[in-house]
Amino acid sequence: MTTLVALALLLGVVLYGVFGGADFGTGLWDLTAGGAARGRGPRELIDHAIGPVWEANHTWLIFCLVVLWSGFPTAFAAIMTTQYIPLGIAAFGIVLRGSAFAFRKVSMRTAEQQVNGLVFAASSVLTPFCFGAVVGGIAAGRVPSAGHGDQVTSWLNPTSVLGGVLAVLTCGYLAAAFLSAEAERRHDVELEAWTQRRAIGAAIAAGVVAVVGLFVLDHDAHRLYVHLWRNGWPCLVVSVLAGIGALVLIVRRRPLLVRPLGVLAVAAVLAGWAVAQYPYLLGTHLTLAQGAAPAATMDALAVIAGLAAVLVGPSLVYLFVLADRGRLSGETPPS
């Protein structure tokens, strides 16, 4: 049961990484879209693309938190007492981002829109960086089981910086890929080209950072590095192939499979991390089995995850299908 719950947690992390990530990434492009006049097209595209789905995308984070604290309470407390700085910043980032996004949508003056837009965009970059840094610190074994690890080096260290930068870039890549599909759907050639340039740029940057990152891991998180090659290599191969495939499709302007391939590329990296870390939850001192809550809790979590799959899964598909078909316009009929 512990393995099942751990898999559910991993699935939650992957889905948050992919959907939450794409969502965060739009902030990067919003931030760099230029002044009010020039950035108008892209900003409107972003607004329409994530307006209906952003809250659902972020609920994956809640799912991860509740599974972690119920299923693996020791690890949860250890992480929270060690990496409380980036986690606290991320929590604030989430508040600022979500509210500013919602406020910008309804505000009328350019100045108000700009303030809200800036807050939205800046916190969309900061927050994934913090999450990436937290993951890096966990992956590098810098969170002791008893908690109270180093408050600074647990998230400001080579692996964490790698994680943070990689998180921002992959978010940007996913966002651009998703947005280009949205632009395509609207037959907006100009925006399609705009998003594609960014998708390609972010993909190349992420690729370069990932390769450099392997050297970083070798020095800073050697166990992870070794196991990544030993057990996690299929994931890496899948990721590289999917990443390249998606790029080729973007260049060839075949949007259909771009999103699934982009998602696969990112999901495979996260899965690779999990495989390389298995069977440890933290460092080499807390295994999944040691960290697990009593069996009854794990059973309950498995049931809850199953219920979530049955109830939430189809609802999410319904939401995405409606959004994809342009049924969620946000307009109200003329009165």
Binding site: G51, P52, V53, E55, A56, H58, T59, I62, F63, V66, V67, W69, S70, G71, P73, F76, A77, A293, P294, T297, A300, L301, I304, L307, A308, L311, V312, S315, L316, Y318, L319, L322, R327, L328, S329, G330, E331, T332, P333
Partner: peptide, 29 residues
Amino acid sequence: GAAYGIPFAVEGIFFFLEAIFVAIYIYGW
């Protein structure tokens, strides 16, 4: 967490459904 966390996990399902359908309702007029 092993006990106290469980109601929150149940809550997670409801909030998910709420976030999804609220979006459909708000944007689907």
